Amino acid sequence: MGTWGSGNFDSDTAADHLAELTDRLLDEVVAAMAGDPVELEPDEYWGVAVPCNLELLCLLARQGHVGVALPAPETVAEWKTTFLAIWDATIDGLEPKPDYRVARRAVLVETFDRLAAEAALE
């Protein structure tokens, strides 16, 4: 195995580990996006966890370490469309405060857009 520096992620083994980690995050998003749309509603597990996974992928990608692979920007755009359609259709049923609704939606849009931008850099 090759080592190219003294950092925690400066070896083939570390890159393999990081690839496994990012693959897991992506696999979870892929499964959630292909699964029952109810599971993506704002008060459901994947309605919260998908944006968390996307945020983690953005953070990892920004580090520039070998081993991080992102989906195509077009895939992220499809996920965004699907996710936001479900969010928009269901959020009002939870009776959120208007400011929260606007702010949370803006965060969701920005999260998907950042991941798409990071993916476009690959």
Results as ranks from 00 to 15, higher is better:
S6Q: 06
G7C: 13
G7H: 04
N8L: 11
F9N: 10
D10E: 15
D10I: 05
D10S: 14
S11R: 02
T13L: 03
A14E: 13
A14Q: 06
A15I: 03
D16C: 10
D16H: 10
D16G: 14
H17I: 07
A19V: 03
E20Y: 05
L21C: 04
L21S: 04
T22D: 06
R24H: 12
L25H: 02
L25V: 03
L25E: 03
L26N: 03
L26Q: 05
D27E: 15
E28T: 07
V29D: 00
V29R: 00
V30A: 02
A32F: 10
M33L: 12
A34F: 15
G35H: 15
G35A: 15
D36F: 13
P37A: 07
V38H: 12
V38Q: 11
V38D: 14
L40R: 03
L40K: 01
E41L: 08
E41S: 12
E41P: 04
E41H: 12
P42G: 14
D43L: 07
E44M: 12
E44S: 10
Y45D: 14
Y45G: 01
W46A: 14
V48Y: 06
V50K: 00
P51C: 03
P51I: 02
C52A: 15
C52K: 06
C52V: 14
N53Y: 14
N53E: 07
N53H: 15
L54P: 00
L54I: 01
E55M: 01
E55Y: 01
E55H: 06
L56Y: 09
L59A: 06
L59P: 00
L59G: 12
L60V: 04
L60I: 02
R62T: 02
G64I: 10
G64E: 09
H65T: 12
H65G: 08
V66L: 10
G67Y: 02
G67H: 04
G67C: 09
